[in-house]
């Protein structure tokens, strides 16, 4: 296993250029709007600055290769869980927090490790079984502590935290073991963000009917449909990311990103509303918490992973 395998992949080059150009164009448009048309753009600039901060870090990790990407994902996953834990209150119970941290790190290590039976990268069998061991570990905590009051809530929240923010997110890490690593990962990053932006834009332009008034009052049916249309077209436009995909895979990819991405967004929304907070944190200026940024990706990652594995395997 090589620790560093810097750059060189043509798909990585394409996406790096694409994102650089997009950032440049977006910056220029903002400049024109601000100085040419004198529009107040403060909050948009904050979000843009946030992107200038996120993009180099993400691409930096990708350019450093597989292990760096997995480590980067582990860090994001840990911070996302920390935000979830601080919002729900389980963070004050350090034993549970530590247990989930250990769970997240060991899951990521399993995506990095080699399967001892087959010698393939990523220990798939154990990786799929991690929730079993983790649930067993969590249920042991109240027994060891000899406590009962409020333990079911802590165990349940930690379980959701680990399985959703740790294990499901780690599927993205497992995708790095594929020969088409950059194509899959970069496509997901790009398509999920575009799906978010499309939902927002279509909602702004045509939005009339509320999608889920209780869960997220700003989202509209028109926005959601527009985003699905964009997401269905994306795999065709970006076919170079996975040239081996047939029509069925392309359709499924579009559906997974279009529907799954919005479900991911909405699931964090309902969690936030139940807990009673506006943002999950303030880690990225202009974007809220890290969890607010990666919510759709977490939902999409395992669905896409298992689709790919079913049709083409992950190695």
């Amino acid at each position: 296993m090589k620790w560093f395998e810097i750059g060189g992949d043509p798909v990585l080059w394409t996406y790096t250029w694409l994102v650089a150009v997009l950032l440049g164009v977006a910056g220029s448009v903002l400049l024109i709007l601000q100085y040419g048309f004198k529009k107040p753009m403060r909050s948009v600039w904050d979000t843009y600055r946030g992107w200038l901060f996120i993009v180099p870090i993400v691409f930096g990790a990708l350019w450093l290769g597989r292990p760096a990407t997995i480590v980067g994902l582990a860090i994001i996953s840990t911070i996302a869980f920390k935000e979830f834990a601080r919002a729900t209150g389980i963070y004050s119970d350090w034993l549970y927090t530590l247990a989930v941290y250990v769970g997240i790190i060991s899951t990521m290590l399993l995506t990095l490790a080699q399967d001892p039976r087959t010698g393939e990268l990523g220990w798939y069998g154990l990786f799929m079984a991690t929730p079993v061991y983790f649930v067993a570990l969590l249920l042991t905590i109240p027994i060891l502590m000899n406590k009962t009051k409020g333990q079911l809530q802590r165990v349940s929240l930690s379980m959701l935290g680990f399985i959703y923010l740790g294990w499901m997110f780690a599927h993205l890490g497992f995708l790095t073991n594929s020969g088409n690593f950059y194509g899959y990962i970069l496509y997901l990053f790009f398509a999920v963000e575009l799906n978010d932006i499309a939902a927002f834009m279509f909602g702004k332009l045509f939005g009339k009917h509320k999608l889920r008034s209780e869960v997220s009052p700003n989202k509209t049916i028109e926005g959601a449909l527009g985003a699905i249309v964009v997401s269905m077209a994306m795999p065709l436009l970006f076919h170079f990311s996975f040239p081996h995909f047939g029509t069925l895979e392309l359709i499924l990819t579009g559906l997974i990103v279009g529907v799954g991405g919005q479900l991911g967004d909405l699931s964090i929304s309902f969690i936030k509303r139940d807990v009673g907070v506006k943002d999950m944190g303030a880690s990225i200026p202009g974007h809220g918490g890290i969890l607010d940024r990666v919510d759709s990706l977490i939902f999409v990652a395992p669905l896409f992973f298992h689709m790919v594995r079913w049709f083409h395997g992950v190695h």
């Binding site: 919002a87 809530q153 139940d274 009673g276 200026p285």
Partner: peptide, 26 residues
């Protein structure tokens, strides 16, 4: 269920360091 969100959830790091009592971080 009763949730207890950290009171400094929406503050960034520099503000969080200045507020007291500080929320404990591992």
């Amino acid at each position: 269920w009763q949730y207890e969100p950290a009171p400094d959830l929406d503050r960034d790091l520099s503000e969080r360091l200045r507020t007291f009592p500080r929320q404990p971080h591992l």
